[in-house]
Amino acid sequence: MPYVGFHNKEISFKIVYYGPGMSGKTTNLVHIHKTLVPARRGDLVTLDTAQERTLFFDFFPVELGRVEGYAVRFNMYTVPGQLYYEASRRLVLDGADGVVFVADSQHQKIEENCESFLSMQKNLRSYDMDLQSFPLVLQYNKRDCENPIPLGVLERQLGLNGVPVYESVAVKGDGVFETVKKVTQLVVEQFQI
C-alpha cells in the first residue's frame, strides 16, 4: 500500500527483503546502501542482536528523485530470518508493496527456503494481499557455494510460475542491483492511485 501525500508531494513504496536466516538479506541492503551515492539514500538503521543477527528489521530509504512533481522514495526493509522471529516478520510485511525473497543456494537449505517462502505467503495473505499479482522477485543468493541448488528447483517445489529469478553473491555485490532494479520496476508498474 504505497503512501501518496498530495500536500507534501511525496510518494513512498515499501520493499521488504524476506528469507531464511543467514540467507543474505541484510547483506543485500548493506551493498545497495554503500553503493548508492549519498544523495540517493538515507541512513541505514539496523536493529540487531549482539551477534549481529537482525532482531526486528534493517531499514533505509532510497530517494528515487522527483517524478511528476512528487518526491518518490523506496523504503527498504529486511525481516529477521531466524525461526523464532515469525511474529516480527509478519509485522514488517504489513503494507509491503513488493518483496524480494532471498533464498540460500546451499543444498542443505532447500527445506528451510521452502518453509520460509510458505510462511511469507501466509503472512501476505493475512494482510489480504493478492499473491498472483503481488510484485515478487526470487533471488538465489550465495551462488559461489559448493554444489548450489540448481535454478528451477525452488520454483518447482513452490509452484511458482513467471516469478523473476536472479542469481547473486551478495557479499560481492553480484546480482544485488539487478534484483532491486526488478522489484522496484514491478512495484512502479503496478502503482495505482
Binding site: 498530495f6 528515487l64 517524478v67 512528487y70 518518490v72 542491483f177 512502479v188 492511485i193
Partner: peptide
C-alpha cells in the same frame, strides 16, 4: 477532498520513474 486533487498522470509517472530506476540501479 483528495479525490479532487489527484494530479498525477499515471502513464507519465510510470515511464519517468522507470527511467530513474534504470539510472540509479545501473549494473
Amino acid at each position: 477532498r483528495e479525490t479532487m486533487e489527484k494530479d498525477i498522470s499515471l502513464p507519465a509517472f510510470r515511464e519517468y520513474a522507470l527511467n530513474l530506476i534504470d539510472r540509479i540501479f545501473q549494473t
